[in-house]
């Protein structure tokens, strides 16, 4: 719908105080064009980044102070986990490509839609495999007698991998939500049971997927960074 403005703006020049209508103020207030998801996600990631920057500085200081610093041996399964997480970024990329091919007319049952939820589901599975793998890594360490309080390095390993896992869990929840909505709206026979998920128009869906993807890739990059910090940086 078109909203009435306080006064018709045609033919008026705005030469005071910067760009007026048509300038940068007020862009994207239409729901479909709104950038809020992406902007909000950008700032959320800035905050999460600061959390890990602070923990990194604590790690560096703590290591610098400790003459008897002894890192734990890296559990081999972490290679596998990392591979799964990096792969999940590619599957999510495939999902986004599929999303660009989805049109409103092909909403239910189109090939692009099938590809979309297929790739999203695969991303979910890979994320879940990563988290299970992380738990296996924790179990390996505890079987070796390395617990949270055993050494400063083990403390940091459990803390950083645990916090990263929690953040990834948020990403999994978001993708699961999107995935379920797409299933419901695009022809899976479970529509009625999922009405509580709410409605999502295609343009808004695109933006939410974009924001979620930004988050997911960042969590992947964060994990690679943490791995390097914990096991490669001396």
């Amino acid at each position: 719908m078109v909203a009435r403005t306080l006064k018709d703006t045609a033919g008026i020049r705005f030469d005071t105080g910067g760009p007026g209508p048509g300038g940068n103020g007020g862009e994207g207030r239409e729901p479909g064009k709104s950038q809020v998801h992406y902007t909000g996600m950008f700032f959320a990631l800035a905050a999460i980044g600061m959390l890990f920057v602070a923990l990194t500085s604590a790690y560096v200081v703590r290591q610098g102070l400790d003459p008897a610093w002894k890192p734990v041996r890296m559990p081999a399964i972490l290679w596998f986990n990392t591979f799964a997480l990096i792969t999940s970024s590619f599957t999510l990329k495939k999902a986004r490509w599929a999303l660009t091919r989805v049109r409103v007319s092909t909403l239910s049952g189109g090939g692009a839609t099938a590809a979309l939820y297929g790739w999203l589901t695969l991303t979910l599975v890979l994320g879940f495999i990563f988290l299970c793998g992380q738990l296996v890594a924790w179990r390996r360490l505890s079987l070796e007698g390395l617990y949270l309080s055993t050494s400063p390095h083990s403390s940091f390993f459990y803390l950083l991998s645990g916090l990263h896992g929690l953040h990834l869990l948020g990403g999994i929840a978001a993708i699961l939500w999107l995935d379920l909505i797409i299933w419901r709206d695009h022809g899976f026979p479970i529509q009625r049971g999922l009405n509580w998920l709410g409605k999502l128009e295609l343009p808004v869906l695109r933006r939410k997927v974009e924001a979620t993807a930004l988050y997911w890739h960042s969590m992947g990059a964060l994990w690679v960074y943490l791995l390097l910090l914990l096991f490669a940086w001396r």
Partner: peptide, 21 residues
């Protein structure tokens, strides 16, 4: 709270509400 403040200021300004206004 901060997320909301920043996003609202950057994305939801009215027409003509440039930064310097």
């Amino acid at each position: 709270t901060s997320l909301n403040f920043l996003t609202t200021t950057l994305n939801l300004r009215a027409r003509g509400m440039s930064l310097t206004r």
